[in-house]
């Protein structure tokens, strides 16, 4: 299987993992820090944005999505889009309450 071979070609070094981990910790810190600030209507947007960046890091680096073939990327893309649509529709209600 070609994608198995490509796995072996892409060994990520510990340094990268460590950096990503530190990045995730930093973003968590930012989430906690900004939680106390009232951004009004965009509070949730800010929180979701940070969470999205964190998920993207985990998916691409830790879960190796970066090195997978296109089918898997499309699958994950579909899942992400579905999730975004759910949230947008949820706020079609909440924003106008």
């Amino acid at each position: 299987m070609s994608n198995h071979e490509s796995h072996e070609n892409h060994v990520t070094g510990y340094g990268v993992y460590l950096l990503v981990w530190l990045g995730l910790l930093m973003l968590t810190g930012i989430t906690v820090a900004v939680a106390g600030i009232d951004f009004g209507r965009i509070t949730i947007t800010v929180a979701l944005l940070i969470a999205a960046i964190k998920s993207w890091l985990v998916l691409t680096i830790f879960m190796h999505l970066k090195f997978e073939d296109t089918t898997f990327k499309i699958f994950v893309f579909v899942a992400v889009i579905t999730f975004v649509v759910f949230i947008v529709l949820l706020f079609a209600d909440y924003l106008f309450m």
């Binding site: 649509v85 529709l89 079609a92």
Partner: peptide, 21 residues
């Protein structure tokens, strides 16, 4: 997958939400 809130029309949703769903 996009129609779920039609179960909640009397639950205190916004008018816009009800219209969309």
């Amino acid at each position: 997958s996009l129609v779920w809130a039609h179960h909640m029309f009397t639950a205190g949703m916004s008018d816009t939400g009800r219209f969309v769903f």
